[in-house]
Lab assay of single mutants.
Amino acid sequence: MISLIAALAVDRVIGMENAMPWNLPADLAWFKRNTLNKPVIMGRHTWESIGRPLPGRKNIILSSQPGTDDRVTWVKSVDEAIAACGDVPEIMVIGGGRVYEQFLPKAQKLYLTHIDAEVEGDTHFPDYEPDDWESVFSEFHDADAQNSHSYCFEILERR
């Protein structure tokens, strides 16, 4: 099963200049909980913004210009990325925008964090048809001392 995991502000903004323009430790914990011990696929820009392999996960970098870091697996196509994951129950696609666009048609599940923030962004989550998805989990949280904005975790499964 292919799943996408993303944090989205208003207007589906997911990033600005290779960074997330908010401070939500709870979302980072949600991300870790849902990706640990699963292969993660990301684009080169996302890889560069993280700066290191995510521990406890097979890191697969999709790029037309593969790098030389041998701590991760470099691939040039969506099919190659899927094959590099091996026989696993769930593959997690973690961004960025172009990689989400490439995998959305193949995805069966979306793990979304909806952030109540209007922020400037240069990267967006692809538009998706809500009628194609069923919400199977939703959990709202107010902003607090650690988390700069209110947010809602949601899991959607393709109908």
Results as ranks from 00 to 15, higher is better:
Ile5Gly: 01
Ile5Cys: 01
Ala6Val: 14
Ala6Thr: 15
Ala6Met: 06
Ala7Pro: 01
Leu8Gly: 01
Leu8Tyr: 03
Ala9Pro: 02
Ala9Leu: 07
Ala9Trp: 02
Val10Ile: 04
Val10Ser: 08
Val10Arg: 01
Val10Ala: 14
Asp11Gly: 12
Asp11His: 03
Asp11Lys: 15
Asp11Ala: 14
Arg12Lys: 15
Arg12Ser: 08
Arg12Tyr: 13
Val13Ala: 05
Val13Phe: 05
Met16Thr: 04
Glu17Lys: 02
Asn18Leu: 14
Asn18Trp: 05
Asn18Val: 03
Asn18Cys: 06
Ala19Arg: 04
Ala19Lys: 07
Ala19Phe: 15
Ala19His: 15
Ala19Asn: 15
Met20Glu: 02
Pro21Gly: 04
Pro21His: 02
Trp22Val: 00
Asn23Ala: 15
Asn23Leu: 08
Asn23Trp: 06
Asn23Met: 13
Leu24Asp: 06
Pro25Lys: 04
Ala26Met: 02
Ala26Tyr: 06
Ala26Gln: 04
Ala26Ile: 09
Ala26Leu: 04
Ala26Thr: 03
Ala29Tyr: 02
Ala29Gly: 04
Ala29Met: 03
Trp30Gln: 06
Trp30Gly: 04
Trp30Glu: 08
Phe31Glu: 01
Lys32Ile: 00
Lys32Cys: 04
Arg33Ser: 14
Arg33Val: 11
Asn34Val: 08
Asn34Gly: 10
Thr35Leu: 00
Leu36Lys: 13
Leu36Gln: 15
Asn37Met: 14
Asn37Ala: 06
Lys38Asp: 03
Lys38Cys: 12
Pro39Trp: 06
Pro39Ile: 06
Pro39Asp: 02
Pro39Ser: 06
Pro39Asn: 10
Val40Ile: 11
Ile41Gly: 03
Ile41Asn: 02
Ile41Leu: 10
Ile41Pro: 01
Met42Val: 00
Met42Trp: 00
Met42Phe: 15
Gly43Arg: 02
Arg44Lys: 15
Arg44Ala: 13
Arg44Leu: 04
Arg44Thr: 10
Arg44Ser: 15
His45Gln: 10
Thr46Phe: 03
Thr46Leu: 00
Trp47Pro: 02
Trp47Ser: 05
Trp47His: 14
Glu48Thr: 12
Glu48Trp: 15
Glu48His: 14
Ser49Cys: 08
Ser49Trp: 00
Ser49Thr: 14
Ser49Lys: 00
Ile50Gly: 00
Gly51Lys: 12
Gly51Tyr: 10
Gly51Ala: 10
Arg52Asn: 14
Arg52Val: 12
Pro53His: 15
Pro53Ser: 14
Pro53Val: 10
Leu54Phe: 07
Leu54Pro: 01
Pro55Trp: 12
Pro55Ser: 14
Pro55Thr: 12
Pro55Tyr: 13
Gly56Phe: 09
Arg57Ser: 01
Arg57Thr: 00
Ile60Glu: 03
Ile60Phe: 14
Ile60Tyr: 15
Ile61Pro: 01
Leu62Cys: 15
Ser63Gly: 13
Ser64Pro: 03
Ser64Trp: 09
Ser64Glu: 14
Ser64Arg: 14
Gln65Val: 14
Gln65Ile: 14
Gln65Glu: 14
Gln65Phe: 12
Pro66Asn: 11
Pro66Tyr: 09
Gly67Phe: 07
Gly67Ser: 15
Thr68Glu: 14
Asp69Ile: 09
Asp69Met: 05
Asp70His: 13
Asp70Asn: 12
Asp70Arg: 13
Arg71Lys: 11
Val72Phe: 15
Val72Asn: 08
Thr73Arg: 15
Thr73Ala: 11
Thr73Gln: 15
Trp74Gly: 02
Trp74Ser: 05
Trp74Asn: 04
Val75Trp: 03
Val75Leu: 12
Val75Ala: 07
Val75Ser: 11
Lys76Cys: 12
Lys76Thr: 13
Lys76Trp: 12
Lys76Ser: 12
Lys76Tyr: 12
Ser77Leu: 08
Ser77His: 14
Val78Asp: 14
Asp79Ser: 12
Asp79His: 12
Glu80Pro: 03
Glu80Val: 09
Ala81Leu: 02
Ile82Pro: 00
Ala83Leu: 10
Ala83Tyr: 11
Ala84Gly: 05
Cys85Glu: 01
Cys85Pro: 04
Cys85Lys: 01
Gly86Asp: 06
Gly86Trp: 05
Asp87Ile: 09
Asp87Gln: 12
Asp87Lys: 08
Val88Asp: 11
Val88His: 12
Val88Cys: 15
Val88Leu: 12
Pro89Thr: 10
Pro89Tyr: 11
Pro89His: 09
Pro89Ala: 12
Pro89Glu: 09
Ile91Arg: 04
Ile91Ser: 13
Ile91Gly: 12
Ile91Leu: 14
Met92Phe: 15
Met92Thr: 11
Ile94Asn: 00
Gly97Trp: 00
Gly97His: 03
Arg98Ile: 02
Arg98Trp: 14
Val99Ser: 08
Tyr100Met: 03
Tyr100Ser: 00
Glu101Pro: 02
Glu101Trp: 08
Gln102Tyr: 12
Phe103Leu: 07
Pro105Val: 07
Pro105Gln: 11
Pro105Thr: 11
Pro105Met: 09
Pro105Asp: 08
Lys106Leu: 08
Lys106Ser: 11
Gln108Ser: 10
Gln108Asn: 08
Lys109Trp: 10
Leu110Thr: 00
Leu110Phe: 06
Leu112Cys: 05
His114Val: 13
His114Gly: 04
His114Met: 13
His114Thr: 10
Ile115Ala: 04
Ile115Gly: 01
Asp116Ile: 15
Ala117Leu: 04
Ala117Glu: 07
Ala117Arg: 08
Ala117Phe: 02
Ala117Thr: 05
Glu118Trp: 14
Val119Asn: 12
Val119Arg: 11
Glu120Met: 14
Glu120Gly: 12
Gly121Thr: 00
Gly121Leu: 01
Gly121Ala: 02
Gly121Pro: 00
Asp122Thr: 03
Thr123Gln: 03
His124Ile: 09
His124Leu: 07
His124Tyr: 03
Phe125Pro: 01
Pro126Thr: 07
Asp127Ala: 13
Tyr128Lys: 04
Tyr128Met: 07
Glu129Leu: 10
Pro130Trp: 12
Pro130Ser: 12
Pro130Leu: 12
Asp132Arg: 11
Asp132Gly: 10
Asp132Ala: 10
Trp133Phe: 13
Glu134Lys: 10
Glu134Thr: 07
Glu134Trp: 10
Ser135Val: 09
Ser135Gln: 13
Ser135Lys: 13
Ser135Ala: 03
Val136Trp: 06
Val136Pro: 04
Val136Asn: 09
Val136His: 10
Phe137Leu: 11
Phe137His: 10
Ser138Asp: 06
Ser138Phe: 04
Glu139Asn: 07
Glu139Lys: 08
Glu139Trp: 06
Phe140Thr: 13
Phe140Pro: 12
Phe140Ala: 13
Phe140Ser: 11
Phe140Arg: 14
His141Lys: 05
His141Gly: 07
His141Arg: 06
His141Ile: 07
Asp142Gly: 09
Asp142Ala: 11
Ala143Phe: 07
Ala143Met: 07
Ala143Leu: 07
Ala143Tyr: 08
Ala143Trp: 06
Asp144His: 04
Asp144Thr: 05
Ala145Asp: 06
Ala145Pro: 07
Ala145Leu: 06
Ala145Met: 08
Gln146Phe: 11
Gln146Pro: 05
Gln146Ala: 08
Asn147Pro: 01
Asn147Arg: 03
Asn147Phe: 01
Ser148Trp: 01
His149Arg: 07
His149Phe: 00
His149Ser: 02
His149Leu: 01
His149Pro: 13
His149Ala: 04
His149Val: 10
Ser150Tyr: 06
Tyr151Asn: 03
Cys152Val: 09
Cys152Leu: 10
Cys152Thr: 14
Cys152Asp: 11
Cys152Met: 10
Phe153Lys: 02
Glu154Trp: 07
Glu154Leu: 14
Glu154Pro: 01
Ile155Cys: 04
Ile155Asn: 01
Ile155Val: 07
Leu156Asn: 04
Leu156Cys: 05
Glu157Met: 08
Arg158Lys: 08
Arg158Thr: 05
Arg159Pro: 12
Arg159Met: 10
